[in-house]
Design a protein around this nucleic acid. Structure first.
Length: 144
DNA sequence: CGTTTTTGACCCGCGC
DNA sequence: GCGCGGGTCAAAAACG
């Protein structure tokens, strides 16, 4: 399968539909994820790292869009109401517990629904790389 | 060789 | 109490 590379920067102006769905008590995936063994919250439990959820609708012939981070696919399941399967991705950073879900819209196969869960706690490499020369130039001009 | 991708199987929570 | 659904992990294979 071909790679996109800088698709994030070459994104067409179609990726403008941003839907905010910050609601629902998604919490920690109801069913799966049982493998975890550190859920033994003592009496002080109650505070759970609730990760925010953001759904983005992107129109692209490609399934996956590189938003500047590295994603590793860890699962794929078919969804009801949709003839297309849903792909589960995760940030490859060990310090980053961000999850991403990509699902194709049944109405338009060209539309993909990207759902981001969590927040990156590490700088964006791609973005940094893209800004590296620019930042350097800025510093150079500032210092001058 | 390292990393990533793919399929199957497993587990837990909730529903009835 | 049991069954189903959904989600995740694991191992092997493929790719660069």
């Amino acid at each position: 399968m071909p790679e996109l590379g800088l698709a994030s920067l070459l994104l067409p102006s179609a990726a403008a539909a941003v839907s905010l769905q910050g609601d629902e008590a998604e919490g920690e995936a109801g069913g799966g994820g049982g493998r975890s063994n550190d859920k033994s919250t003592p009496t002080t439990m109650g505070k759970k790292a609730m990760s925010p959820k953001f759904a983005f609708r992107t129109k692209s012939p490609n399934d996956i869009l590189d938003d500047g981070y590295r994603w590793r696919k860890y699962g794929q399941k078919a969804v009801k109401n949709s003839p297309y399967p849903r792909s589960y991705y995760r940030c490859t950073h060990h310090t980053c517990n961000v999850k991403k879900q990509v699902q194709r819209q049944s109405k338009d196969a060209s539309i993909v629904v990207t759902t981001y869960e969590g927040i990156h706690n590490h700088p964006c490499e791609k973005l940094m790389e893209a800004f590296a020369p620019l930042l350097k130039q800025i510093q150079f001009l500032t210092g001058l």
